[in-house]
Amino acid sequence: MNLKTYIEGKRNGQEINALERKALEDRFLEEALNGYDNIKGSHSENIAVLQQSILQQKPQTVFPKYFAIAASVALLLGFGAFLALNFDNLFPKKYFIAKNILQKTENNSFQNFDKIKIDTAEFKNLIVKTEKEDFIAPNFDSVTGFDDRDFFESIEKTDHFDAAKEVEKSIVSVDTNSQILIALAENENILNEVAVGYGTQKRKDITPSEKTKKPEPIIGARAYKNYLKKNINYSINADGKSVKGKVTVVFSVDTLGHPTNIRVTKPLCPECDKEAVRLITNGSAWTQSSIEAEVEIIF
């Protein structure tokens, strides 16, 4: 700033000329220059003192609100990242494995208790519960006297959880001069059973989460609706009376995806019900599921 050198006492040169010319158009500057011209004193020091004391009136670095917000977000993210990175250490994986299995067994609920084999030596407390036939094991708390630490240790001891794929033995003659790629066939019989620590269950009951979803038409929900609209036969009410309403049909899906066991839960009229069943049987195949499908057909 030219003014600074002017205050320091410099009065010669182009810089000062530029300042003086500016003062001709700027009365604020002109009066200030007059002040410095007329009064002698240690002006530079006075200005420094003034500027310093104004800065010290309030803490110099008061952060604006958005900075505080940003800082707290950063702190949260940092802490979150720390948690995420150390997640494995804070919550051992085996805990989740055990929890998962319990959840699954809960979902599939042991319908036949005689299938569950409990190792009596390891789970004394559990046995009492199963004998009462109310063992669900939704969480550890509901199983009284159950020490989950022992449970985890016992899981660790069993090697079943590594889910090592058993492979069928096969003999292949090999040309040792060329590279070979060998694909091994899975042994379905061995994989069908998964050990759960305190019992065995058929694999298909535990793993296929697909099958616990509601069945859907293979062609898609929208296409299926179109199919129903197009193919519905209204002429069944040939006696002139048009019936309006809904027919609700419930059915299960067989292993090939075909609707079986079709039942009408909300009938409308005998002809309508028959037509609804016809539409379902002639319609698209469905995704496999253990849950029954429910379809509303609007007349």
């Binding site: 205050i7 002040g35 002006h43």
Partner: peptide, 20 residues
């Protein structure tokens, strides 16, 4: 604006301490 303000104050008050 202190350099300018101080100069103006000097111009009117004719005294460095008063200007300060």
């Amino acid at each position: 604006y202190i350099p300018l303000l101080y100069g103006v104050a000097l111009n009117y008050l004719q005294n460095a301490d008063n200007a300060k």
